[in-house]
């Protein structure tokens, strides 16, 4: 999370991909970094947070995350 925030500070549009199980620490890092509203893309179950995903699941995850990533990268700042 912090890496994404620091890249944004450096002027590089960034999207953090966070599993729902890790959203607590992601939110904590946002608060600590002074950007509590900074958005990120969320991956949810049934995809488990730490696993060896097979190629079929990886493609499924990509299909789910791609719209969130595109939205975050193209949405106007503050929009």
């Amino acid at each position: 999370m912090r890496d994404a925030i620091e890249l944004e500070w450096a002027g590089i549009p960034t999207v953090a991909l966070i599993h729902k199980a890790m959203s607590g620490s992601a939110n904590s890092m946002k608060r600590l970094s002074g950007v509590p509203d900074y958005p990120y893309a969320v991956l949810d179950y049934p995809h488990v947070p730490l696993a060896k995903w097979d190629p079929v699941e990886v493609r499924e995850i990509a299909r789910k995350l791609a719209p969130q990533i595109i939205e975050r990268l193209t949405k106007p700042a503050g929009g």
Partner: peptide, 10 residues
């Protein structure tokens, strides 16, 4: 260092 369970200690 804020290593509190449920906060940054996960």
């Amino acid at each position: 260092m804020r290593g509190i369970p449920g906060f940054l200690d996960r």
